[in-house]
């Protein structure tokens, strides 16, 4: 195969970010624009100062041209994340987060830190949550089984990170467990 080994099993984080950028986010436009058709759909019209839903790629583009303010999603604030962090550190299972929260949070906070009340606090909370969740997926590793893996509420970036070696390890287990698959005749 022509692809380097790490790219065969998984997509790259940047590709996930691209996918996540199709999600809609609320903005407060600072310029007026008629409803406009894009390849992924028609968005607008933008009528300041009323809110409007556009994809993240469009919101970040407008934001960088200072043509809108981004309204943070309802899960991307200090109170919500603090509550989730407590759940994450006390409970056994993964707490429920939006599936692409890592990508969305990073893109929004990186491009529009001035639209968040406390961006540094949010960043450090996200980092804490990520580390707590990593510790749990590591735990899952020791319970690895050849036929199934159940880690509910794992989000896309985390799945992507562990996918290559989890599937390889499960593949090895299938090979070395007797009768995991129908016995093949070698001779």
């Amino acid at each position: 195969m022509a692809l380097p080994a790490p790219l065969r099993a998984s997509v790259t984080p940047t590709e996930l970010e691209l996918i996540a950028s199709e999600q809609l986010v609320e903005i407060v436009p600072l310029v007026a624009m008629e409803r406009t058709a894009f390849i992924s759909g028609a968005y607008g019209p933008l009528r300041p100062p009323s809110k409007c839903k556009v994809p993240i790629w469009m919101a970040t583009n407008l934001k960088l041209k200072k043509k809108c303010r981004i309204v943070p999603p309802d899960w991307l604030n200090v109170e919500f994340l603090e509550e989730r962090l407590v759940q994450e550190t006390t409970g056994e299972s993964f707490s429920e987060m939006p599936f692409r929260f890592a990508e969305v949070a990073k893109v929004l906070i990186d491009t529009a830190p001035d639209d968040f009340p406390n961006p540094d606090k949010i960043r450090s909370l996200l980092k804490d949550i990520r580390e707590a969740r990593q510790a749990k997926s590591r735990e899952g590793l020791s319970k690895l089984d050849h036929s199934e893996l159940s880690l509910p509420n794992l989000c896309s970036m985390e799945i992507n990170e562990i996918r290559p070696f989890f599937i390889r390890a499960m593949g090895v287990l299938i090979d070395i467990i007797k009768d995991a698959q129908p016995q093949q005749d070698i001779a």
Binding site: A9, P13, A102, N160, F165
Partner: peptide, 18 residues
């Protein structure tokens, strides 16, 4: 495999988007 995927994920988290 682990090293490669961890590294690319970490790089993504640390890179700035602007």
């Amino acid at each position: 495999l682990t090293q490669a995927s961890t590294r690319s994920t970490k790089r993504w988290y640390e890179a700035s988007d602007r």
